[in-house]
Computed example of a mutant assay.
Amino acid sequence: MNTSTPAHSAFAAFELFRDPRGRLVCTMPNGTAHVGVVPVRAFPITAPGEGISLVGCDGHELLWFDRLERLPEPARALIEAELAEREFMPTLQRLVSVSTFSTPSVWQVDTDRGPTRFELKGEEDIRRLPGDRARLMITSADGLHFIIDDLHALDRHSRRLIERFL
Rank of each mutant, 00 (worst) to 15 (best):
L62S: 04
L62P: 09
L63K: 08
L63M: 12
L63E: 05
L63C: 13
F65Q: 01
D66C: 00
D66R: 06
R67N: 07
R67C: 07
L68D: 09
E69L: 10
R70K: 13
P72E: 14
E73I: 07
R76S: 02
A77C: 04
A77F: 05
L78M: 04
I79L: 07
L83P: 06
L83M: 11
A84V: 07
E85A: 15
P90M: 10
T91F: 05
T91V: 12
T91H: 10
R94S: 15
V96T: 12
T100I: 02
S102P: 06
S102T: 14
T103P: 00
P104E: 09
P104D: 06
S105P: 03
S105L: 02
V106A: 02
W107C: 04
Q108T: 14
Q108S: 13
D110V: 11
T111N: 06
D112T: 12
R113Q: 15
R113N: 11
T116N: 13
F118P: 07
E119S: 14
E119M: 13
E119Y: 00
L120C: 06
L120G: 06
K121P: 04
G122V: 10
E123A: 11
E124D: 10
E124L: 12
E124I: 10
I126Y: 03
I126K: 01
R127T: 10
D132W: 05
D132I: 02
R133A: 13
A134M: 04
A134E: 05
R135F: 11
L136A: 07
M137Q: 10
M137Y: 00
M137G: 07
I138P: 03
T139C: 05
T139M: 04
D142A: 06
G143C: 02
G143E: 02
L144N: 14
H145K: 07
F146M: 01
F146L: 08
D149N: 15
D155R: 00
D155G: 00
R156V: 12
H157I: 12
H157N: 13
S158H: 14
S158G: 15
S158T: 14
R160W: 08
